[in-house]
């Protein structure tokens, strides 16, 4: 019997350890980095101040797939917002060379996203982003529930399906 208890407690421990690990991987919150928006106003990435789910999309003016992704979502954005209450935050990793072209592109394309500037890659580093585009989906409590590194046409459908899952949970 002692042996059984021993085995059981080990099993229990490893079970806890395991489920905690997967918790760490999927349910992480966003680290606090102070970024500026296009107007120069400071925004703390740990608290964007939105009620519903949030999409964080890392992009740059020189990144074609990033622009394809954000332009595709732009066409669907009104529907997505009405349906799920989502807000998209487009984090530009353009450095000083191309940073000034960001408002030209964003306004020229008529994007309605909150655009944040990350010219020295501080937020990119904190979020573990290797290359752009890299997109994160946060539930309304700010936990990361889905992430994807790349963009191919059709990826927006997968993202939307993940968004709808959040809606079903409420």
């Amino acid at each position: 019997m002692k042996k059984l208890v021993f085995v059981l407690s080990i099993g229990l421990l490893s079970f806890c350890g395991f489920s905690q690990e997967s918790e760490l991987l999927s349910g992480k919150s966003v680290p606090s980095v102070k970024l500026k928006d296009m107007d120069g106003k400071e925004v703390n990435t740990a608290d964007f101040g939105f009620d519903g789910p949030v999409i964080i999309s890392f992009w740059a003016t020189w990144c074609s797939p990033c622009k394809r992704e954000l332009n595709t979502i732009h066409d669907l954005y009104t529907d997505w917002q009405e349906e799920t209450g989502v807000n998209l935050i487009a984090v530009s990793v353009d450095d000083e060379k191309t940073k000034n072209s960001v408002p030209v592109y964003v306004n020229g394309k008529g994007w309605e996203y909150l655009v944040l500037m990350d010219p020295n890659g501080d937020f990119k580093r904190a979020m573990g982003v290797n290359n752009v585009p890299h997109t994160f989906l946060l539930d309304k409590s700010g936990k990361i529930v889905y992430a994807h590194n790349n963009y191919a046409p059709g990826d927006e459908d997968k993202l939307y399906a993940e968004l709808l899952k959040l809606k079903d949970q409420n």
């Binding site: 000034n100 072209s101 408002p103 030209v104 592109y105 964003v106 306004n107 020229g108 008529g110």
Partner: peptide
């Protein structure tokens, strides 16, 4: 020096 103007559908930058 960077000077810019932008509105929905138009962006201009001179540097």
């Amino acid at each position: 020096i960077n000077l810019g103007y932008s509105q929905k559908g138009l962006g201009i930058l001179v540097s």
